[in-house]
Write a protein that binds this DNA or RNA. Structure first.
Lengths: 328, 328
DNA sequence: CTGAAAGCGCTAACAT
DNA sequence: ATGTTAGCGCTTTCAG
């Protein structure tokens, strides 16, 4: 592998000039430029990012933290981040924390170690104390999950409103007994979606029953299956279910399909509009967030932050996608 | 941000000693070590990977190329790669090519630029010519998709055999008219799975009908839906379907569910055992590959290759997982 | 417009 | 056991 010195020697110029050509500085004569360019071609030279990065003290890498890569909710967001990053000469380091503090530490250290220039966290389980500390000296953006009243810039959607609208839709369909399949309420989004659920019920003077609110351990399909099974065993069965994620909702559909059959149909609404939600039987009514856009904007926010600019929080719009699971 | 010099000064030692402490060289007295360690703590020092990487001329990053992050087939493989990488002080740069040559180039350049130490490619659409050229001077491993008779080390499973066994199973269930939903046969796995399909049919003297072999454009759910719709429109309908991926098979199930109803049931077998395959209605019979293990081993192969060791190809075992979609 | 030279932060001979 | 020093490959002042 040739280095910049060898190019300089071959082209009969100084390394500074080679560097200028490499970086498209416009203060190089066309002649010198072409001399350098042919030397580069001849020696098959590729500039080393290692040297450049040290010199510029940047890695042009952004860390993207998420709890699990297998949650399809994150796919489109990641796409958005990645495309935006690449367009700006950045790359992303996708990191799964598995919701483990140990992993999280490794990754956050990569920022301190200058292996990455900043971080976009989509991990609701992240230790906010540590993240806040990191954010004092390094660029950090929260995407989707955020901290109420915190100081780290975030981009998100209005979970409370979306949940409110979803449940209101179920009510307007004629349902009065509406269950909530929620995840752990240690997560902000879970608290917000519950709040939206309750707001809708209250508005229509419907009872909020503890037994209709089920908390799952995780966000896997299987958790949704289990939740629905429990709800079906109640003496007073709900007529409709709002699940705070599509994976849970799809699990609920599964339990409805296989566990019981041919009785009063139970409407189901999910949240996220993952691609599989359109492949289930019945297809799933769900809340869609502009995930790709969210990813793009999150990346932009991070790059601004890296440049030292101040960035504002963003709240994006959502949309209720009506499909078969609420069609009776 | 403190650097190694400041630590050295603060601790009253040389930078070399600090470096030794950092790298756990055991030729440092406990006393000096603790002096250094307290200086590190006091100044809140974190060693810069930028300097270390340049010095060691390594990035400790491995590139992982895949066509699309939203294909759930890759999830467990990536998990395996990532866990193995982290355990060995590596990190992974997950790169989606979107099957675009332009993207591919950017990523392969990252290797030449020393931004990554090697690459694991899982992208069937990759330009093998370029990859081979890269492999002459850089560590490259193929995972899942490989090149027959090529010189790049690979890890994979026996697609032909797996397909043969899956189709044989359908035959033994009493099916005689068996369709194949294949992807583009420019991909090796597609050719191999077709070969296995044909071998099984031939062995049982069953006809191979062109109209029962459908080629999809992509591997999305929607391609499977479309394929199944076509097959259902045939005068002579197949009794069973083997799809070369779960996403296609799930699309096929969808078409069976919604398009037609209450007639002779059509058995469906998929390939990959993605997590959704257990959530469909009916659940999907499919071929399971040890994806996590494949990822771990691929990472190990790459690390060996980076060390300059010779690595052998690996062919892992698969397994047919029987579920409801073939239960009549 | 181009070159000389310093230096980014670190590791590893080599010397003591 | 510890220190001195060169240098990884690059960019960027500063001179000319």
């Amino acid at each position: 592998m040739a280095n910049i010195q060898q190019i300089a020697r071959k082209a009969g110029v100084s390394v500074a000039t080679v560097s200028r050509v490499l970086n498209n500085a416009n203060l190089v004569t066309p002649q010198t430029r072409s001399k350098v360019e042919s030397a580069i071609k001849e020696l098959n030279y590729e500039p080393s990012m290692l040297g450049r990065n040290l010199r510029n003290s940047e890695s042009r890498l952004m860390l993207v933290l998420l709890p699990s890569i297998s949650n399809p909710f994150y796919n489109e967001i990641i796409n958005g981040i990645q495309n935006t990053a690449i367009a700006n000469n950045y790359n992303i380091l996708l990191c799964e924390t598995d919701s483990k503090a140990e992993r999280e530490n490794i990754y956050l250290n990569m920022i301190k170690n200058k292996l990455a220039d900043g971080v976009i966290s989509m991990d609701p389980t992240i230790n906010m104390e540590k993240l806040n500390e990191l954010a004092e000296n390094h660029p950090v953006i929260l995407c989707s999950e955020y901290e109420e009243g915190g100081s780290i810039p975030y981009i998100t959607t209005d979970s409370e409103l979306a949940a409110y609208q979803a449940v209101k839709y179920l009510i307007q369909l004629g349902n009065e007994k509406i269950a909530l399949i929620n995840s752990d309420e240690k997560f902000l989004y879970a608290r917000l979606r519950r709040a939206g659920y309750e707001r809708a019920l209250k508005e229509f003077n419907l009872p909020i029953r503890d037994q209709w609110i089920y908390h799952t351990k995780d966000l896997e399909f299987q958790d949704g299956v289990q939740a629905m099974r429990m709800l079906l065993q109640l003496e007073e069965r709900p007529q409709a279910v709002f699940a705070v994620s599509d994976t849970l909702a799809i699990g609920a559909l599964k339990a409805l399909n296989s566990g019981v059959q041919a009785f009063e149909s139970i409407a189901v609404v999910g949240f996220d509009n993952i691609s599989f939600s359109n492949m289930t039987n019945p297809t799933l009514t769900t809340v869609s967030q502009p995930m790709y856009k969210m990813g793009c904007l999150a990346a932009n926010m991070l790059m601004s932050s890296i440049k030292g600019e101040k960035v504002e929080n963003i709240v994006l719009d959502h949309e209720l996608i009506i499909r078969e699971s609420t069609m009776g």
